[in-house]
């Protein structure tokens, strides 16, 4: 991917409409130790292969999306609204 993103709200839209923040990493709890926060802010897995990234449909619905992509082939596996992704992440953490 990367030519077209299938926004869950707007459908297939060109890359030009999006801005990309980078790898998805969970923001730690405020009370987490410094080391955890440092890793959140500065360390990246940077896999060659499957990766989740934050994309923002900035010239569309303005929703943040979690795009799961292959960094080598650019194949897209899925696009989720970031809020839904976060909710599932929180739920997972609770379980």
């Amino acid at each position: 991917m990367a030519s077209l993103i299938t926004c869950p709200h707007c459908g297939s839209r060109p890359k030009e409409e999006f801005s990309i923040r980078g790898e998805v990493r969970s923001r730690p709890e405020p009370a987490a130790p410094f080391e955890t926060w440092y890793r959140y802010v500065y360390v990246r897995d940077n896999p060659k292969g499957r990766q989740k990234e934050y994309w923002h449909h900035v010239l569309g619905c303005r929703r943040w999306l979690v795009v799961e992509r292959d960094t080598l082939t650019h194949e897209v596996y899925g696009v989720t609204d970031a809020a839904a992704y976060r909710a599932s992440e929180v739920k997972e953490a609770a379980e």
Binding site: A2, S3, P14, I20, G22, N46, K48, E53, W55, T71
Partner: peptide
């Protein structure tokens, strides 16, 4: 940059 993480040595038209 093309702005997305990539190990591919090719980019996009935009």
């Amino acid at each position: 940059l093309d702005f997305f993480g990539s190990y591919a040595q090719h980019g996009n038209l935009a």
